[in-house]
């Protein structure tokens, strides 16, 4: 991937992210990778294992929210860290496929605990270069 596709916007208590993508699947996968980048330096993660999760939603916001929740649980429960991501969208259903590996305290430094991805101010909209998403994670 060329450069960083996300940036942090000012927010007093939590972290607000702004993410760009050329199309919706690209935007969603960049959002998921942004989430993992908040946890760990992704360059230290090897893509040796594949995990797949599904989400669904009526709107793009709902789809993104459900994918991000599932992605966070992969780490919170299974200690899985992602290096790369691919998203496919079929109607209301979205599938996320991640390449990564389980957390290894010898090689990975996880910087912060993410309590949850919030639905607060979550937005997905068209932008000149494609799509733009904003969301807040509670840390």
């Amino acid at each position: 991937m060329k450069g960083r596709r996300f940036r942090l916007l000012p927010h007093t208590a939590d972290l607000m992210l702004e993410v760009r993508g050329e199309d919706l699947p690209g935007l969603f996968s960049s959002c998921v990778l942004a989430l993992f980048s908040l946890l760990v330096d992704r360059r230290t993660v090897r893509g040796t294992e594949i995990r797949s999760v599904e989400g669904a939603g009526e709107t793009a916001e709902d789809q993104l929210f459900s994918l991000l929740r599932e992605a966070l649980l992969l780490f919170a429960i299974h200690k899985f860290l992602a290096r790369s991501a691919r998203v496919t969208i079929e109607g209301k259903r979205v599938t996320l496929t991640l390449a990564g590996e389980p957390f290894d305290s010898e090689r990975h430094s996880v910087d912060r605990e993410i309590k949850a991805v919030t639905a607060h101010l979550m937005s997905v909209e068209r932008s000149p270069g494609g799509y733009l998403a904003r969301f807040i994670v509670d840390v």
């Binding site: 942090l8 000012p10 927010h11 007093t12 208590a13 939590d14 972290l15 840390v139």
Partner: peptide, 8 residues
Amino acid sequence: GRRMSRTQ
């Protein structure tokens, strides 16, 4: 109570 954002 926080005064500054985490990024700041």
